[in-house]
Design a protein around this nucleic acid. Sequence first.
DNA 1: TATGCTTTGTTATTGTATTAACAACATAAT
DNA 2: ATTATGTTGTTAATACAATAACAAAGCATA
Lengths: 206, 206
Amino acid sequence: MRLPAKTVERLSQYRRVLQKYEDLDELYIFSHDLASMLRLTPVQVRRDLMLLKITGHYRSGYNVKAVLRTINETLSIPKTQKTTIIGMGELGQALLKNISSNPACPALIPATFDLDPNRASKTYHNVPCYDFIKAPELITKHDIRIAILTINSPEIQEIVDSLVLSGIRGFINFIGGPFRVPDGIYLKDYDMRTTLDELSYFVSQM
Amino acid sequence: MRLPAKTVERLSQYRRVLQKYEDLDELYIFSHDLASMLRLTPVQVRRDLMLLKITGHYRSGYNVKAVLRTINETLSIPKTQKTTIIGMGELGQALLKNISSNPACPALIPATFDLDPNRASKTYHNVPCYDFIKAPELITKHDIRIAILTINSPEIQEIVDSLVLSGIRGFINFIGGPFRVPDGIYLKDYDMRTTLDELSYFVSQM
DNA sequence: TATGCTTTGTTATTGTATTAACAACATAAT
DNA sequence: ATTATGTTGTTAATACAATAACAAAGCATA
C-alpha cells in the first residue's frame, strides 16, 4: 500500500512525539494531544492512523507502543537509510553535524564528497570526505540512496546525472541552480530564496 | 488579489530564470523553455502568468523585461525584506553566509541573535549578533518581519512567542522541536528528519 | 485565399488533501 | 434504565492544485 506523501510526513512527526511519550512511560495518547503538538487537527491524526489500520481505544486513546511499532514498520528505522552529502562547505559541515549528532535522525552517512581537493581527503565529524570522482564507486559499495546537495558548481546537471547513475534515488536540494532529474527520482527543494520570497509575499498581505 | 501559495513559489523561480535571460539580452522566452528549466509544464507557467494578467505574444513568447517587471511588482524586491536568524551556531552561520553573499537573495539581515553570551556581541559575515534579550527592541527598530530559527533550546515556545510579540510574522524553522504559532503567522518547516523519512519511504517503494 | 503551424489563453476535468459531519461505542452519572 | 459525555472511525463535502483539452490568434506558405 502506498501512503499519501503528506501522511508520510506526518507519520515521521508522530513518531518523534510518541518517542517522547514512551520515554515518559505514557501508555496512551489522544488524537487531540498529538494534533495540538504538531499544529494539526485531531481528524487528520485519526485519518492518518486509520490508513495504517491502527485502532484506538474508547476514552483512553491510542496505545503509544503499538502506534510506534506500526510506524516503525512503515517508515525506515532511524540510522538505517544511507545518505551522503555532496559539498562539504560551511553548510555541508553544519548539516552533517546536525544529522550525525542526532541519534534519532533517520540518516546514516558513511561518506561525503566534494570537488575541492582541499576538502576531499579530510574528515568532518568523523565522516570521511572523498573526491567526487570516487562517488560512483563508493555510493554503489555503501548502497547509498539519498544525497543532500550543497555544492555550488556550474556542472550541477552532470553531477546529478552521475549520482543518479550511481544509484541515488532521492535528493534534498539546497542549491538554487536549476537541474533536471529523471522520472522516479524524488527531489525535495530546500530553497531559501524561494521560501523567503513566499514568506515575504504573505507577510506583506495585511 | 491573493495568489495561490504554489504560484508565488513558482513566480520566485521564474524571476531567477528570467534574470539570467535578461543578463544574456534575450528579449523573449517561451512558456515551454521556462517550464523545462524548472521541472514544470508549460501550462503551469501560462496559468501562473495569466493570474498576473501578463500576456505573451504569438510566436515569440513572453517579453522577458515585462514579465520581470510584473513579478517584481508582485513579490518583494531582492534585499528589501528584513530578516533575522535566531541561533548563530554552525548552521546559522552557514545560512547567514549563503544569504548575505548572494546579491539576488530577497532577504536583508540587519542583525542576528543567540542565547549564548559567547556568540552574542560577535559579528558574523559583517552582521552583528546580539543577546536574545535585545531581540524585541531591535526587531521593532529594524522592522524585521521574518525569522530563521536554528536555535536549540527547551524554551523554544517562549522564544517564538516573544518573537511574534516583537513583530515577526513568518518563520523558517530548522529546529525539530514542536512549538505553536498563532493564526496568521506563516511557518515553513525545513525539517531534515521528516524529509529524510519521507524520501526513505518513497525511495524504498520499488 | 486557403491551409497549416505554433504558441498563447481559458475552461473543464481529474487528482490530492483538508475539513465537516456524524455514527458508533463504552463508560459515567442520574 | 436512561441520558449525557468523550472519543474513535468513517463517509461526505469542500478546497486547492495539476493536468487535459481545446479554442483563438496570427503569421507562413502554397
